[in-house]
C-alpha cells in the first residue's frame, strides 16, 4: 500500500531522481536547484512552447529552479495535483478555476497566458458563421457540457439560443466535414489547424471578439503557496515570461523544438507550426506589450467576472492576484 503513503517527500524525491537523469545534459550545473512541478492542462504540444523554451534555455535554472512539466490529458484534471501540493502551479482557465474555488479550493490566478479566450465557432466557407447572428438556424456540433458557453455568447449578442440546433459531438472536425453539422464549437488552435493541414479551408469566429471575455491558460496556485513559496513562484513566472517572449520571436523554431523534444507524441510539424503561429494573437496584445506577458488589469478582470456570471459562476476580483507578476515585471 505504499502508493497511498505517497508523501510530498516521495514526490520531491522522484523529482530529484528525474532531475538526476537530466544531469547528463551539458547545461546542467552543480548548483542546488529547488525542484518543483507545473501541471499542464493537456498533452505536450506547442501550446506550452514558452515553457519548453524556459526549460531548454536554462531560464528556470537561472532562477535556482528545476521545473518538471507534467502533461495533462482527457482524464487528468489540473486542480487536484495543485491542491494537494504535488504541483506548485497548474495551467487552468478562469471558468475551471472559478468552479474549483466554488468547491472550496484556495486558488488564485497569478497570470494569464491566453488574453483572449481561444473558443471559436468553426464553419466551412460555403456556409460561414462570421458573427453570432449567423448561428440562427444552424446545427452546431459541440459537447453538451459546453452549452453554457454557447448560451453566454448568445446572451452577450442578443441571439436566441433556441434558434440553434445543438448536436452533441465528440471533439473532432469530422462531423463538420461530413456535413452532419454546420459549425463546431472548438478551439482556434486545434481543429481548424488540423483541418487546414488536411487541406480543408475553414472560417473561424473568435468568441472573444464578440464579448466572450474569459481568461484561458491561466496560471493558478494555492493561497498557501503564494504566501509561503513566493520566491519559487516569482522564479517560475519569470522563466515563463522570458520563455514566451523568446517563443514569440520565432514561433516556427518553438514548434520545431517541441516536435524534436517529444518524438514519441506523433506531433505533426506542420500542425505545430500553424498552431504556434495562431496562438500568438491570443496570447499577446497591447496590454502585454505595455506591461509584460501574462498581465491583467481591473478592467479585464471585470469583463471576466461578467462573462463568468453568464456562465452561472459568481466570483469576485479576489480570484486574481497580480502580486507575483508585479514582482516579475518590476525587475
Amino acid at each position: 500500500m505504499t502508493q497511498f503513503g505517497l508523501t510530498r517527500r516521495h514526490v520531491l524525491g522522484a523529482g530529484i531522481a528525474t532531475v538526476g537523469a537530466f544531469a547528463a545534459l551539458p547545461r546542467a550545473r552543480a548548483q542546488a536547484q529547488t525542484p518543483l512541478r507545473m501541471q499542464l492542462s493537456w498533452l505536450h504540444s506547442v501550446q506550452f512552447g514558452g515553457s519548453y523554451i524556459a526549460q531548454d534555455q536554462g531560464l528556470w535554472e537561472a532562477e535556482g529552479l528545476s521545473v518538471m512539466l507534467d502533461p495533462g490529458g482527457p482524464n487528468a484534471p489540473v486542480e487536484p495535483p495543485v491542491v494537494s501540493g504535488q504541483a506548485l502551479v497548474g495551467i487552468s482557465a478562469a471558468d475551471y478555476t472559478a468552479a474549483a474555488v466554488a468547491q472550496g479550493a484556495p486558488f488564485k490566478i497569478l497570470g494569464v497566458a491566453m488574453q483572449k479566450n481561444p473558443f471559436v465557432i468553426t464553419s466551412l466557407p460555403a456556409n460561414p458563421v462570421n458573427e453570432p447572428a449567423d448561428l440562427v438556424g444552424k446545427r452546431i456540433g459541440m459537447a453538451l457540457a459546453n452549452t453554457p458557453v454557447l448560451q453566454a455568447l448568445c446572451t452577450l449578442n442578443g441571439v436566441d439560443i433556441d434558434g440553434i440546433e445543438i448536436v452533441p459531438t465528440q471533439y473532432s472536425a469530422e462531423p463538420l466535414i461530413a456535413g452532419e453539422v454546420d459549425c463546431l464549437l472548438n478551439w482556434e488552435t486545434d481543429l481548424p489547424v488540423a483541418m487546414a493541414v488536411q487541406g480543408v479551408d475553414s472560417v473561424t469566429m473568435l468568441m472573444a471578439d464578440h464579448g466572450y471575455a474569459l481568461h484561458s491558460q491561466t496560471y493558478i496556485a494555492t493561497e498557501d503557496s503564494i504566501a509561503n513559496r513566493r520566491a519559487e513562484l516569482v522564479g517560475l513566472m519569470r522563466g515563463e515570461t522570458r520563455g514566451w517572449d523568446i517563443y514569440r520571436q520565432d514561433t516556427d523554431a518553438a514548434a520545431d523544438m517541441t516536435v524534436a523534444r517529444f518524438p514519441d507524441l506523433g506531433l505533426d510539424p506542420e500542425v505545430q507550426r500553424l498552431q504556434a503561429a495562431r496562438q500568438v494573437p491570443l496570447m499577446f496584445s497591447d496590454l502585454t506589450d505595455e506591461h509584460g506577458f501574462g498581465w491583467f488589469t481591473e478592467d479585464t478582470v471585470a469583463a471576466n467576472i461578467e462573462t463568468l456570471a453568464l456562465l452561472g459562476q459568481t466570483v469576485t476580483a479576489d480570484l486574481w492576484d497580480r502580486s507575483i507578476l508585479e514582482e516579475v515585471h518590476a525587475s
Binding site: 498533452l43 490529458g73 482527457p74 465528440q170 471533439y171 473532432s172 472536425a173 469530422e174 466535414i177 486545434d190 481543429l191 488540423a194 483541418m195 493541414v197 488536411q198 507524441l265 506523433g266 506531433l267 505533426d268 500542425v271
Partner: peptide, 9 residues
Amino acid sequence: LTLQAMRGL
C-alpha cells in the same frame, strides 16, 4: 497516439 489521432482528424 489515439488522442492525437482523434484530435488531428
